[in-house]
Simulated assay, not measured.
Amino acid sequence: MNTKKVWMHTPDAGGVKIPPPVRSRTTERITRYAEAQYGGRYSRLDIRYRGVFCYIDAYVEPPEPSPELLNITGETREEFMDRLRNTPVHLCRLRYFGDEEAWGLAFYTYSNERYELCMYRSGGFLGPVEEAFDIGAMYLSAE
């Protein structure tokens, strides 16, 4: 009886811890691409790493609140604006498998408040960080 284990690569499990040089290059790629393609749609990006994951969040300038909305929230205009300016918009989570051109992608679903496996527009489960940003950027409104 053959008891050899067979490892199957799945895009929503496993991965390789992201080394510091890859983190640095990835942050630069994402930042450069985001500014070129989406500059003005966010005030700042937060790109952070944890183990096999790269999380990309954006911060946006909130619209002016109506008096009715401020009445509901019980906040002053300044409190409301400060709270929303400091609330991240979760764009996506990338999973590293050892290839800087082939990251797994999970899209943040606000309806479920969790990251869900997502395919790239090519129909595959692995792709470059720039394409991942494009998918997550749907949460950044066009100016």
Rank of each mutant, 00 (worst) to 15 (best):
E79I: 05
V129M: 04
D82Q: 05
D12K: 00
E75D: 13
L94A: 15
L84R: 14
V60K: 15
Y42M: 11
L45R: 08
P11Q: 11
F97Y: 15
Y115M: 02
A36N: 08
K5P: 02
I56M: 08
E68K: 13
Y33C: 08
F125G: 01
H90M: 09
R83D: 07
I30T: 01
E131P: 01
T87C: 14
F80I: 04
N2H: 14
M138F: 13
T76Y: 06
V89F: 04
G51A: 08
F80S: 06
R77D: 10
D99R: 12
P67V: 11
G98L: 02
P21D: 12
T3N: 13
S122E: 05
E79W: 09
Y49E: 03
D57M: 03
R50L: 01
T109I: 00
S111H: 08
L84N: 09
P88H: 05
A58R: 10
S24M: 03
R44N: 08
R121V: 01
F107L: 09
E100D: 14
I56D: 02
T27P: 06
Y59W: 10
P21G: 09
F80M: 04
Y33H: 11
S24I: 03
S122N: 13
T87D: 13
G40H: 07
G74Q: 10
N71M: 06
M138N: 10
V16D: 02
G104R: 06
G98F: 05
V60R: 15
T10K: 15
E100V: 08
P62Q: 12
D57A: 10
F133K: 04
R121S: 10
L69K: 13
P20Q: 10
A13C: 10
A132W: 01
L70I: 12
E61W: 06
Y108M: 05
R29E: 07
A132P: 04
L84S: 02
G51K: 03
W103F: 13
V60G: 08
M1S: 15
A34C: 05
E78A: 15
S66T: 15
Y59E: 03
Y139T: 06
Y49A: 03
M8W: 08
N112L: 09
T26W: 04
T87W: 13
Y33W: 03
G40D: 09
Y96S: 09
R32H: 12
M81L: 15
A137H: 07
C92G: 11
M138H: 12
E131M: 08
D99Y: 09
R85E: 07
R50P: 00
R48Y: 06
R32V: 02
R93K: 13
P88M: 11
A58G: 13
M119H: 06
N71P: 00
V22K: 02
F133S: 05
G39K: 14
I56C: 13
W103G: 04
P63A: 13
R77N: 12
R114F: 01
V6A: 12
T10V: 15
G15L: 11
H90P: 03
D134N: 14
L91Y: 05
Y42H: 11
G104T: 03
E116H: 13
